[in-house]
């Protein structure tokens, strides 16, 4: 163990990179790529820390820093985005950009950094896109409005382990929008299906399941997101590994709800 640790720390390295970054002054402005050089980037640093280094450098040069979204930097808030070298959240699997480490890149690499591209997520500035559409979809029904009363006894409402696990897996969606960014149709089905599933699987959520599925899908369509063609790119790129099985469940819930109308 000690040896392994030593070996790893010996591998600590620093790399020099060329960055091609999308710069756009405002929503209506025309954007373009700018090329920057960053050097002595520790391979142990995160992608966002690397961008912090770039921004320090730009500020010192009297230039405007690159605008990008971030908050917790722990991979749980869903705030960071970035389309890196052809992948939402970069080339590593099951991680958000803030948890993507520079050891995934090699010295001398050129990294292309773009904002999410979708009609549903217009660019606000540089790498920041407007993801309020997701909030609007949640507001359309992604909650439980029944009065559940006081805290019930832990065993008063039996829920199977399988259902609890599936609901928990669906609930791990952080709403970052990588699914939309990866989808060739700009579809938000993986996000909506996760939000519908996490509630539809549990007794408290089942009460409003039909209304929720209808309202959230209707809002999603209204906001201009595309139609799912089941390619599965969303599932592959999702930093939380949300499964396509949720989309099947959403389809089921929606068809069932509409049949009852």
């Amino acid at each position: 163990m000690v040896q392994q640790f030593k070996k790893k720390s010996n591998m600590e390295n620093s790399i020099n990179l060329t960055l091609k970054v999308w710069r756009q002054n405002g929503p209506k402005e025309k954007g373009r790529f700018e090329t920057y050089q960053v050097s002595n980037i520790s391979t142990d640093s995160s992608f966002l820390e690397m961008l912090d280094v770039l921004n320090e450098q730009l500020i010192n040069e009297g230039k405007e820093p690159v605008a990008f979204d971030h908050d917790c930097r722990e991979g749980i808030c869903g705030m960071c985005s970035l389309y890196i070298n052809g992948h939402p959240h970069g080339p590593d699997d099951r991680v958000t950009t803030c948890q993507l480490h520079m050891r995934n890149f090699n010295d001398g690499d050129t990294i292309t950094i773009e904002p999410w591209r979708s009609a549903g997520f217009p660019v606000i500035k540089d790498l920041i896109v407007d993801r309020q559409a997701f909030d609007k979809i949640i507001a359309a029904g992604g909650y439980v409005s029944v009065n559940t009363g006081g805290v019930p006894d832990a065993n008063a409402m039996p829920i199977s382990k399988a259902d609890a696990d599936e609901a928990m897996d669906a609930a791990s969606c952080i709403g970052c929008g990588a699914c939309v960014a990866a989808c060739k149709n700009g579809s938000a089905m993986l996000f909506v299906s996760a939000k519908v599933s996490q509630l539809a699987l549990l007794p408290q959520g089942k009460v409003e399941a039909a209304r929720r599925a209808k309202n959230m899908v209707s809002k999603m369509d209204e906001l201009g997101f595309g139609n799912c063609t089941n390619t599965g790119a969303c599932e592959v790129e999702c930093p939380k590994g949300i499964s396509l099985a949720n989309i099947a469940r959403l389809n089921r819930e929606f068809i069932k709800a509409k049949a009852q109308d």
Binding site: F33, I84, G86, P91, E114, R117, A182, K184, V236, E237
Partner: peptide, 8 residues
């Protein structure tokens, strides 16, 4: 469109 393409 993405300049870096789609590498999924």
């Amino acid at each position: 469109r993405y300049a870096s393409g789609n590498n999924t």
